[in-house]
Amino acid sequence: MGIVDGRVVIVTGAGRGIGREHALEFARQGARVVVNDLGVELDGAGNRTSEVARSVVEEIRAFGGEAVANGDDIASWDGAAGLIRSALDAFGGLHVLVNNAGFVRDRMLVSMGEQEWDDVVRVHLKGHFAPLRHAGAYWREQSKAGHTVDARIINTSSGAGLLGSVGQGNYGAAKGGIATMTLIAAEEMARYGVTVNAIAPAARTRMTEGPFAAMMAKPESGFDAMHPGNVSPLVVWLGSAEARHVTGRIFEVEGGVIGVANGWTHGPRVDRGARWDPAEVGPAVDKLLAEAPDADPVYGAS
């Protein structure tokens, strides 16, 4: 028996990279898995195919696990609803939703086109919200019907969303939105027995082997800290019954390192007790900045 034995899990974007590793590890630990993937290219282009999702299902079934493939577009309202229905139809329930799907179209902000912005924000931000909303509605119905709900949502943010990343304004904005939505969803869904957390992973995938190739290179020997499989143990644990006390947190994970990210908090303040004169604002701001800790640098900053 594994740590998630018998639980039903959806993993979006599970055909390759980190999502594939999540699906495999959940299955090894006893979960029944819905493997969602459209099979498109790194930038979201290309013909949609369920072949990559089916190949992961075959891997899972080969070692005795249970899995089904799903090719719904998770960033469409009907597609997200269909994804949740696929878990209910195949396995009779749902316990864990792992929102992982996404792609990148990197460009400096002054060169970015409208479609590059819209498509990336859609797949990441709406692609998290829509499955979350439909899964949440199912769990709310279960809770109101008197059933005990012990469910999990694990979202995927990024260091680009927490700290920023040069050339990834669209991606970083979406990932920052995911982090904030995680905090809100944790508060709203606790009443139904649902925890909501997020990860900000660092690993070697199609998204990182371009801009961060040197950092993500495979070692000649020893522990491969950038292998995407290193991210999955935390995600599987967060999906387990053991993690019911953890919600509304953002975890950074890289190699053998797990950390908790500290988000926006109220910092130093000054109260004049009356409306500020613009000429007096500068010295007050300088004093506040001197008292506040320095922000971590944006990735790629010179």
Rank of each mutant, 00 (worst) to 15 (best):
I184H: 14
V35L: 05
R20E: 14
G222Y: 13
T205A: 08
D89G: 00
V270C: 10
G102V: 01
S55Q: 15
S165K: 04
E254H: 15
A137F: 08
I3N: 11
A185I: 04
D43V: 00
V56S: 08
G172D: 12
V96L: 01
I184F: 04
F91S: 09
Q29A: 10
R32F: 04
V231G: 06
K144P: 00
E25W: 04
A160R: 07
Y299L: 13
A81E: 15
M189C: 11
W276R: 08
G146Q: 12
T180A: 14
G71I: 02
A217F: 04
T148R: 14
Q29E: 15
G267T: 12
G229L: 01
A101D: 10
A67W: 01
D73T: 13
T182H: 07
S50N: 13
G64N: 10
F91T: 11
M189V: 01
E220S: 13
A62R: 07
A27I: 04
G282S: 11
D296V: 11
L289R: 14
D294N: 14
A213P: 07
L289T: 09
Y138H: 14
G2N: 06
L238G: 02
V52H: 05
L42C: 06
D37N: 13
P219D: 09
V121I: 15
M112E: 08
D5Y: 04
P283Q: 05
D286L: 14
A200R: 03
T265F: 07
V96R: 02
M1G: 15
R269A: 15
D294V: 14
A14D: 11
E187L: 13
R61Y: 01
V34A: 08
K175N: 04
T49M: 01
T12D: 14
S232K: 10
A81V: 08
D150M: 05
N197Y: 05
S221H: 12
P131W: 00
D72N: 15
R152H: 15
E187H: 13
M216C: 09
L183V: 09
G229T: 01
V98N: 10
P131K: 05
N262K: 15
D118W: 03
Q142S: 10
G164K: 01
A198Q: 00
I184D: 11
A274W: 04
K218Y: 05
G146D: 11
R28F: 01
V235M: 06
Y192C: 02
T195K: 03
I60N: 07
D72Y: 11
W264E: 14
I184R: 13
I154Y: 02
A145V: 04
V4M: 09
G259A: 15
E21L: 03
A135W: 05
A31S: 12
A69F: 05
I178F: 00
G102Q: 00
F212E: 12
L288C: 08
A81I: 09
D78L: 08
G136L: 08
L88P: 12
A53R: 02
P233L: 00
A243G: 05
G15P: 12
G136T: 12
N262W: 10
N99S: 06
D286K: 14
N155E: 03
V52D: 08
S302D: 13
E66G: 05
S165P: 03
L94P: 02
R48S: 02
A45D: 13
P131G: 06
S50K: 09
R28A: 06
E141T: 07
R16V: 11
D37E: 06
K287Q: 15
E114W: 11
